[in-house]
Structures are given as C-alpha cells and as structure tokens.
C-alpha cells in the first residue's frame, strides 16, 4: 500500500515537473543562455543559445510527462540528442574535459530549481520536496545523456579515423616505369603491415613493376613481427616475378635486426630511397646522366 502511494506520488510529481517546465520554458531558457555550457557554444548570438535552451527544456518536459525521469533511452531525448552531441563536441574541441562538461551540465540545475521552488511556494511542502527530487533526477539523467552522446561520437570518430589512417598511410607511388615504392611512416602493426603488403603487390600487378621498394625511413622501430612481415612481402613479390628492395634501414634499426637474430641476407637493402631507385634503374639498364658535367653548362 505504502509502495503504491509512493509510486503515485512520484508519478504526480513527474507530471507536475513536466507542467512546470512547459510553463516556465521561456524563463529557464533565458537563464540557461547565460550559463557556461550554452554561452560558450553559441558565441555568435544569444538568441541562438535561448533557442537551443528551449529545445532542451521541451525535451525534458516530454520525458517528465512520460514518467521516464531516469530513463536514458526515453523517447523525449531523441529530439535533442544530436544537438547535445554537437554542444559537447564543441566544448571538447576547445579543450574542456568530460568532467568539465559534466559540471557545466550540472550547473543548469540551480536556475531551474529556483524557479520551481518559487512556483511551488504555496503548494504542500511534501509535493514541493517530491518535485525538487524529481527535477534533480531529471537533470542527472540529462547529464548522463550528454556524456553518453559525447563518448559515442568520440568512439565513432576514432573508428573512422583508424580506418582512414590504414588507407591513407600507405600510398603506393610509381617512381619510374616498372618501379613502385611505398614510403612507410609511423609505427607498423600487424594490420597495417598486411595492408602495406597487399597494396604494394597489387601495384606490382597494375603497374607491371619489376621492382618494388619498401622504404622504412619513417618507421621508428622494427620488432620481430614487423621484420617478418617485411620478409614475407619480399618473398611474395619474388613469387610474382618482382624484386623487392628494402631501403632506409637506420643504424638503430639495423642493430635491432641483428639483435633479434633476423637474417635479411636474402633481401636486397639500400641506405636510402634514392639508392634503391638507382639500383632498380641500373638493373633495368637505365643510366641517369648529369647534364652539367657531360655538356656545356646551362648557366
């Protein structure tokens, strides 16, 4: 019986808070426009901030009326989820941490609760307290929704960028007829090594390249797994009828390779990309002539 009573109370207080939010939408939005969260995001015009505030209040009212004060998935939030995500992202861009953003959302509460207690000054004390608790719970949920939206947007961004990085970070360049090269930059992991191997070998076919250069000048470290991938790429290229040259092995990496006991004996290596290209040209019987020395200078 008592439980039932509480439930009825909560329901009626949620209804009450919903009504209050709709009634006071304009005032709340006006006050929120001056709070950090809105003020720093909508810097161009205050009207925009007020407009955004109205939408959020309206959404909160819908959630309250539906009696789903503590439900993150409440339908009412759907209409403002996008907007909240953009606001959080905008704050994050200017360097605000997640904790800071959470604080800023929490800072919206006093403005609303002051108005609420003023409205309910003549109501029974019990109802006023119930409503204050409900409003607090509702704004707590809003805080979670903002954080959740911000985090999932961040994760999406990371996933997308990781994919782009895999594709963008391995451009295969045609250096000469029959000579292709991949300049590798950054740390090589297993997945990336796989992508490098496949795109280099695909280029060998599409360019009918007899020489493929793997330039590792920009690779900070080579562990045994990466060295193995390099060896596999060299072996696969050979099976296809191309010769693979590894260039840009810095002294520190050469030392690591020796330490790891990896035998690069069957792999053609050159100090720099330029040396590797010179080797490939020479093997094809192409000579590069310095015109300044062989004939009268142009200058």
């Amino acid at each position: 019986m008592a439980d039932h009573q509480t439930a009825v109370h909560q329901e009626s207080s949620a209804q009450e808070v919903g009504d209050f939010l709709r009634r006071r939408r304009e005032q709340i939005a006006q006050r929120w426009a001056d709070e950090a969260l809105f003020r720093t995001v909508f810097t161009v015009s205050r009207d925009e901030a007020v407009e955004a505030g109205r939408a959020v209040v309206e959404a909160l009212a819908a959630v309250a009326v539906a009696g789903r004060v503590e439900d993150l998935g409440a339908a009412g939030f759907a209409t403002v989820r996008d907007q909240l995500g953009r606001m959080a992202a905008s704050r994050a861009r200017t360097g605000a941490t997640s904790a800071r953003i959470a604080d800023e959302v929490a800072a919206l509460r006093p403005a609303a609760s002051e108005l609420l207690s003023a409205d309910l000054a003549d109501s029974p004390r019990e109802l006023a307290e119930e409503c204050a608790v409900t409003l607090t719970a509702l704004l707590g949920t809003l805080r979670l929704v903002v954080l959740e939206t911000a985090l999932s947007a961040g994760q999406e961004l990371i996933d997308r960028q990781r994919l782009q990085l895999l594709e963008v970070a391995t451009p295969v360049i045609k250096l000469w007829t029959g000579v292709v090269a991949v300049p590798l930059i950054g740390t090589l992991d297993s997945a990336r090594s796989q992508v490098v191997m496949e795109s280099l070998l695909d280029a060998v076919v599409s360019q009918q390249a007899r020489f493929a250069i793997l330039d590792i000048t920009g690779v900070p470290t080579v562990d045994s797994l990466v060295a193995q991938h390099l060896m596999k790429t060299v072996a696969a290229a050979r099976l296809m009828g191309a010769e693979c040259i590894v260039s840009g092995i810095r002294p520190a990496i050469a030392q690591t390779i020796v330490h790891l006991g990896i035998d690069l004996g069957t792999v053609v290596t050159r100090a720099s990309l330029a040396d590797a290209l010179a080797y490939a040209l020479h093997r094809q019987g192409i000579a590069v002539v310095d015109q300044d020395r062989s004939g009268p200078s142009a200058r």
Binding site: E198, L201, V205, A236, L239, M240
Partner: peptide, 9 residues
C-alpha cells in the same frame, strides 16, 4: 596473383 603469392608465403 598477389593473393596466391601471399598465401603461399
């Protein structure tokens, strides 16, 4: 083919 070469290795 590249896929065949990679597999053989």
């Amino acid at each position: 083919r590249p896929a065949v070469a990679i597999t053989l290795v």
